[in-house]
């Protein structure tokens, strides 16, 4: 069933490139659905094929086999004027912004409108709207070389949305920006998503980006989608070894070895809990009920898709039976508990 529920649907999609050493399967038999109005994250190491997959949506890359449905329509075979018309509905922003250096901010934003033969009067009005949306109304006559990275990307966003796109593709759009600017661009994307209901697909190698604004995500590794689902589920409970590795790069916290030795590896617990559980005094209840001593060794709270996810690393000491009961109790009340320092 290809209903209106999905904005984008990949069906057994493969993209291969001929290379001197043989075929390179950049995207290998990927099937994926992306819901309408979502902010969808596509993560993976560089060379995983995520950018190639993204580019099949506006056919900057042609699929070797498989199908791409957008808004219920098969788009693989589009050509010529049909393809150009279709592309006007899909904005894309890039890591290096790709603004024309010989054009002012206004002229850069004007270009897609001129390309779509929009009447002059409307172009003027639309450009003003767009520049206001991205907060650059005062920079309309400035050349890109005079702008900061974040401002350049804002121009990129205005240009991408010029023809009222219903999908916005973000190809490592924040990877060249500092953390503060990244946050402001992500906030802008989120605003646009809420305001216009545009489906946004974000490719990134930065997990923080996905955690900040995506609701669903897919993880790619060497051309395959290895895991997909809700961001909060995948980050708090990754299944695939590659995802685990990817997440541990940013999430993992290693206790100093002397601390592990001091408390004993077996007594150490890693507890993950979601927002709602955070207010329950689980640890103090466990220590009261089962005569165990609990020491907190490390703790933090992450915000994933605006939901707080807490991680606590504790040591739990006491009679073996009590300890086991306490662990079971905590397990019941939280999302996940991993026992033993090597599990961290």
């Amino acid at each position: 069933m290809i209903g209106m529920k999905y904005m984008i649907r990949f069906e057994n999609l493969s993209v291969s490139f001929a290379q001197k050493t043989g075929q390179l399967h950049a995207v290998n038999n990927v099937s994926l659905n992306i819901g309408k109005g979502q902010i969808y994250g596509l993560v993976g190491a560089s060379g995983a094929g995520k950018s190639t997959l993204l580019r099949t949506i506006n056919l900057l890359e042609r699929p070797t086999s498989g199908k791409v449905f957008v808004n219920g329509n098969l788009i693989n075979g589009l050509k010529g004027e049909e393809l150009r018309k279709y592309r006007r509905n899909i904005g894309i922003i890039f890591q290096h912004f790709n603004l024309a250096s010989s054009k002012t901010v206004r002229e850069n934003v004007e270009f897609p409108l001129k390309a779509a033969n929009v009447p002059k009067v409307q172009i003027r009005q639309r450009v003003e709207e767009l520049l206001e949306l991205v907060g650059l109304s005062d920079k309309s006559e400035v050349y890109p070389s005079k702008l900061s990275g974040g401002q350049k990307q804002r121009v990129g966003i205005a240009r991408a949305l010029a023809n009222n796109a219903s999908i916005l593709l973000c190809d490592e759009a924040t990877s060249a920006l500092d953390p503060e600017t990244t946050t402001s661009i992500l906030n802008l994307l989120e605003d646009i998503n809420k305001k216009y209901g545009i489906t946004i697909i974000i490719i990134t190698h930065e997990l923080d980006v996905v955690k900040a604004i995506c609701t669903e995500m897919a993880v790619m590794n060497s051309g395959h989608v290895v895991e997909q689902g809700r961001v909060i589920d995948i980050i708090s409970n990754p299944q695939d070894p590659f995802t685990k590795k990817l997440i541990s790069h940013t999430e993992n916290f290693n206790l100093p070895e002397y601390v592990v030795k001091q408390f004993g590896s077996d007594s150490i617990l890693r507890i993950t809990y979601l927002g709602a559980d955070a207010t329950n005094p689980v640890l103090s209840e466990a220590s009261k009920a089962y005569d165990v001593n609990i020491s907190i060794l490390h703790g933090k709270i992450d915000y994933i898709s605006h939901t707080p996810v807490g991680t606590l690393i504790v040591s739990i000491k006491g009679d073996q039976e009590d300890v086991q009961k306490a662990i079971d109790y905590i397990k019941n009340k939280t999302l996940r508990v991993e026992v033993g320092a090597n599990e961290l």
């Binding site: 024309a100 390309a115 240009r159 023809n163």
Partner: peptide, 8 residues
């Protein structure tokens, strides 16, 4: 590429 992607 950006110009191409906007359907020009």
């Amino acid at each position: 590429e950006a110009a191409n992607a906007c359907g020009a």
